[in-house]
């Protein structure tokens, strides 16, 4: 009996207060996350129906469209060629980005690394430059007429490359993303490296390991969780590539308005006023991103976090 009373009191308290504390998070989550997603889902099932010339009052109504918008999205070759381009982009970007980030992190983590602090900041700094600004900067460097590189080549009588040409533009965009993203991933990996107990290195060295062997056999395996996380982030960022091609597009004929799936969504929503198609494609892209991310996690989880299970 005496033990029951505090229990009851505790439960009485529990009914109100926690909800009050939770309320801001829950309300924000509902209002700015679930509600927009729900609205996008709703819009994706609607379409416009116009009667006659569409000029009189009330000649435009919104009707239920079923899965029509999804059907149109799935059968749109522009969307898929954009998706394919993004896949190629990811296949090139993710390994290069993580390879470079890992290399820089390992180099900085070397004992007696010189100018470590300066190099770390210098490599990280581009991450602080917004993608739009970075793309404008690089755009000036790419455009033959304004590029100092082309200026030099012409001086030596060499042929001028058009880095925003049909094929080159793909690598031009990858380069911008690489320039902006390596620093961030390097910092994440470097921080994870600093968290590894130094005794491990010490005993490895006593056993006769060279620095390279330490890096390959101790550092990289222990970095696996951090590598998985950075890979996942980079993959998601890849699927969402938008600012760089969008900013470069007005400078060249090589980037169409549907160059990536997100650019197509933007075009549908804001340039051709078809927010219904845009909503359906958004839902599709979100679903694909989710499946790919979860699939990747599942694939690597055992290997990376194996010791935890």
């Amino acid at each position: 009996m005496p033990t029951a009373t505090p229990g009851v009191r505790r439960r009485g308290r529990r009914t109100g207060i926690p909800y009050v504390f939770l309320a801001p998070a829950v309300i924000l989550f509902l209002a700015f996350f679930l509600a927009p997603i729900g609205y996008a889902g709703y819009l994706s099932l609607r379409k416009v129906r116009i009667s006659g010339l569409g000029l009189g009052r009330g000649s435009r109504t919104e009707v239920f469209a079923g899965l029509e918008n999804y059907r149109n999205a799935v059968t749109d070759s522009e969307l898929w060629s954009g998706a394919l381009r993004v896949l190629g982009y990811g296949a090139l970007l993710v390994p290069t980005m993580l390879g470079l980030a890992l290399l820089f992190a390992l180099l900085l983590d070397r004992p007696r690394a010189q100018l470590a602090r300066f190099s770390r900041t210098a490599i990280f700094l581009p991450y602080a430059v917004p993608a739009v600004i970075a793309s404008l900067l690089w755009g000036f460097l790419y455009l033959p007429a304004t590029s100092p590189l082309n200026d030099l080549l012409v001086r030596f009588g060499l042929p001028e490359p058009d880095l925003l040409g049909t094929d080159a533009v793909f690598y031009a965009v990858v380069n911008i993303a690489l320039w902006g993203g390596v620093g961030f991933n390097m910092i994440v990996l470097y921080t994870a490296l600093r968290a590894i107990p130094p005794e491990l290195y010490e005993s490895a060295r006593l056993d006769g390991c060279s620095e390279i062997q330490v890096a390959l056999r101790i550092k990289i395996p222990l970095l696996a969780p951090a590598l998985v996380m950075t890979t996942l982030f980079t993959m998601i960022a890849t699927l969402q590539v938008f600012s760089e091609p969008m900013t470069l597009a007005p400078m060249t004929n090589s980037i169409s308005s549907t160059w990536t799936p997100l650019m197509k969504i933007y075009r549908d929503a804001f340039a051709t006023d078809d927010r219904y198609a845009a909503a359906a494609t958004s839902v599709l892209v979100a679903a694909i991103t989710l499946v790919l991310s979860l699939g990747f996690l599942r694939l690597v989880q055992k290997r990376a976090f194996g010791q935890e299970h």
């Binding site: 569409g54 000029l55 040409g165 049909t166 060249t252 004929n253 090589s254 980037i255 169409s256 308005s257 549907t258 075009r267 340039a271 051709t272 006023d273």
Partner: peptide
Amino acid sequence: GPNVNVTYETYQDAFGKAITG
């Protein structure tokens, strides 16, 4: 017309493609 935006968007993509291709 009522969808000049669509025509204009297509102009940019189609002529861009015609020039590069």
